[in-house]
């Protein structure tokens, strides 16, 4: 775990350094007209990831099925296409899979890095993990992957300072920041908030490069 963290810090640091150098280079030799466009992240709101449909023995339950999403089109993909490369990431409750390895036919992979979403300017060359029967690339469980579960308030919160880097089904790159796990993305969700509705920001690089600029 500690090692993993160190590597993540190292990767994040390296990414930050590379991007800083890049920025400085831009600043020093380019005019105002060449400034990179301000990247505006796309926002997806209330993406239903198998919300509760009823109660069994007084417990809320969902259908157990993943909801699929294409980072390229920004649209939900029908579950019927789950065996294709049409989708990049799929969500079910707090679980996340990417289209590759044991989860799909694509080249999909992922890594969760420590850092600030807006400051991550490039996808790293190494560190990619593919879903397998040893676990998903975005590790499940509180404190392991993208979220913290607070047993006192019974609330799932996205871990600040964690960015999901995704290699899409066709090998391109995207970064994702989870905003909320609850419908309407309430400022301070409670145990009563409607869970399994994701709000997230993402930047997809269509040109196939690692850059997020």
């Amino acid at each position: 775990m500690v090692n993993m963290k160190r590597i993540n810090t190292f990767v994040a640091g390296l990414a930050a350094l590379v991007s800083l150098l890049f920025l400085m280079a831009c600043d020093s030799n380019s005019g105002a007209e060449d400034e990179p466009n301000e990247i505006v992240a796309e926002r997806v709101t209330d993406f239903a990831a198998d919300p509760f449909v009823g109660f069994v023995d007084g417990r809320p339950v969902g259908t157990g099925k993943y909801a699929f999403f294409s980072l390229q089109t920004g649209l939900e993909i029908d579950a019927a296409d789950s065996a294709s490369t049409a989708w990049d990431i799929a969500l079910q409750g707090t679980n996340m899979i990417v289209n590759g390895g044991s989860s799909g036919p694509g080249q999909g992979g992922a890594q969760v890095v420590e850092g600030i979403f807006e400051e991550i300017m490039e996808a790293p060359a190494t560190g990619w993990v593919v879903d397998s029967d040893q676990g998903t690339a975005i590790v499940a469980g509180s404190g392991n992957g993208w979220y913290n579960y607070n047993p006192a308030s019974m609330v799932v919160s996205p871990m600040p300072g964690r960015v999901l880097l995704i290699r899409t089904a066709d090998g391109r790159f995207a970064k994702i920041k989870i905003i909320s796990y609850y419908r309407g993305a309430p400022e301070t969700p409670t145990a009563e908030s409607e869970a399994r509705f994701y709000t997230f920001d993402y930047v997809f690089q269509p040109d196939g490069s690692r850059s997020f600029l």
Binding site: K5, E114, I116
Partner: peptide, 15 residues
């Protein structure tokens, strides 16, 4: 102190 703990302020993360 290692800079690996973040918080979210007005939608943006920082250390």
């Amino acid at each position: 102190e290692a800079g690996s703990l973040f918080k979210r302020v007005n939608g943006r993360d920082r250390r």
